[in-house]
Design a protein around this nucleic acid. Structure first.
Ligand code: FES
Ligand code: FES
Lengths: 156, 156
DNA sequence: TCAAACAGGACCAGGTTGGTCCTGTTTCGG
DNA sequence: CCGAAACAGGACCAACCTGGTCCTGTTTGA
């Protein structure tokens, strides 16, 4: 169904909360009540984000988590990579031969990369701070130049 | 893990085969041996593609499937939508309130759309014919303008 | 010294996917 | 006019993955 896992979903929500006050640090229980998500889950996700280097953790009482760099330097791609693994729509990834059964006969190996890269670039173009200030973002910038169609015509 | 389902994966492979000779029609068994995928699976996918209007089916002996429009007018987004449902990374989709538990408190509703739309636009920018002729595609076009970094620095 | 928070796993129930199979129905060729 | 080849439409099940909880340390501020 091409959905983000809940983990990534929640993770991004949590990160945007953190990004509201970049210099403060938040404890897991605080974020849990704030976002109304179950604590164990929140905790698990924050731990992961910290381990992967997107958050800094402060242990002990009065501990918590804080962003490791300013929100405009954290892209959606960064977060998804950490939470859901590398952004790749197919198994046929570069430098990893042998994964795909088609490999030997597939004339289109490498074109998957095209797709993967398109998605990756799109997600790198959105930063955490932009998620909090939606107005800043020129939507057309992300699309294919020249296509100025009404955005509404895109879904289907 | 943000992977396409196998269904979509295989579906795209099959479509590219069809696109090689746009006017001919191919029977399921033929495509199955050609792609070395199991027949029942191939059959299932082709049926789906036909039902959803991307392929035209010809019944009876000597039957088969053919593209319903020229390959340059079929986007990767079209195929994925049909095979894996609408392209949306999160449940919080427009015009469908009530799905997300966060909804009431979520200040970022609507910004998910940003992410979803970015991905959607990226995938609409790639056509089936481009998958067969990779050289035609200016990769930069898909990225954020101004960012001319070495593509290699993108993965991770 | 105690309590609050983080660290790191183990663990399991539920849902989704991948894949097969079966029973029609249509159509070409002989 | 008959039979084989192919499509149509579901039912069905096993295997995997995800979502979510819980438990046992370890760190640190008051
Ligand atoms: S190498 Fe995997 S489908 Fe082409
Ligand atoms: S409405 Fe679903 S997370 Fe915001």
């Amino acid at each position: 169904m091409i959905r983000l896992t809940k983990q990534a979903d929640y993770g991004i929500v949590l990160m945007t909360y953190l990004a509201r006050i970049p210099n403060r640090h938040f404890a897991a229980p605080e974020l849990a009540t704030e976002t109304r998500l179950p604590l164990p889950t929140v905790s698990k996700i924050l731990k992961l984000l910290a381990r992967e280097g997107l958050l800094e953790s402060h242990r002990g009482a009065k501990g918590g988590y804080s962003l490791v760099r300013p929100p405009d330097r954290i892209s959606v791609a960064d977060m998804i990579s950490v939470l859901d693994g590398p952004i790749a729509f197919t198994e046929c990834i570069e430098d990893a031969p042998g994964v795909c059964s088609q490999e030997s006969i597939c004339q289109l190996r490498g074109n998957w990369q095209l797709i993967n890269q398109a998605v990756r670039l799109a997600l790198e173009g959105i930063s955490l701070s932009e998620l909090n200030h939606p107005l800043d973002i020129p939507l057309v910038q992300l699309g294919v130049p020249g296509d100025q169609a009404d955005p509404r015509s895109l879904d289907h």
